[in-house]
């Protein structure tokens, strides 16, 4: 993956910029209100954008879908934005984890860490809102929501 540089624009938003394999400089400017601009820099004056594409939040989703980004992550990032102080993480159940083989209920993960499993991804199949009877099989990816600290404990428990 190419290097992405981030630039803060006070009062406006944040700009992420990278160079494509064809050598063009491309940037995405995320305005604070959710609007985006897709920018392509001028080859003769690399400080200036020749093409500017203005996207509303809806347009951004459509474009992202056409480019192949996962809708799951889109929806989850929307949740993340709404609930301040909460974070979301994807954690793979490790081979040697003591949680491997436990069900979600018997693992008591939620009681220990405060983080809840909102989805399980197993062999590219997603189980949304899995019940307590679901088993944690090594290789499963658990999508968990919790406080940043809770998620850290959660990761530790699933990895060892």
């Amino acid at each position: 993956m190419p290097d992405v540089t981030e630039t803060q624009l006070p009062g406006v938003g944040v700009r992420h910029e990278f160079e494509t394999s064809a050598g063009e400089r491309v940037a995405i400017l995320a305005h604070r209100g959710g609007r985006r601009e897709v920018l392509v820099y001028d080859a003769s004056d690399p400080d200036r954008c020749t093409t500017v594409l203005h996207l509303s939040s809806d347009d951004t989703r459509t474009l992202a879908e056409m480019l192949g980004a996962s809708q799951v992550s889109q929806a989850l990032s929307a949740v993340e934005q709404q609930v301040e102080g909460l974070a979301i993480d994807w954690v793979t159940v490790a081979q040697g984890s003591r949680m491997a083989g436990e069900t979600i209920g018997s693992s008591n993960l939620r009681a220990h860490t405060g983080a809840s499993i909102v989805a399980l991804v197993r062999d590219k199949e997603t189980i949304a809102a899995p019940g307590p009877e679901h088993e944690l099989v090594p290789g499963d990816v658990a999508v968990a929501v919790g406080t940043p600290d809770g998620l850290q404990e959660f990761r530790d428990l699933l990895s060892a």
């Binding site: 624009l9 006070p10 406006v12 700009r15 940037a27 820099y41 400080d47 200036r48 954008c49 500017v52």
Partner: peptide, 12 residues
């Protein structure tokens, strides 16, 4: 349409 330009952060 100059929000993306490289001189713009300086201005802002």
């Amino acid at each position: 349409d100059r929000f993306g330009n490289r001189e713009t952060p300086v201005v802002l």
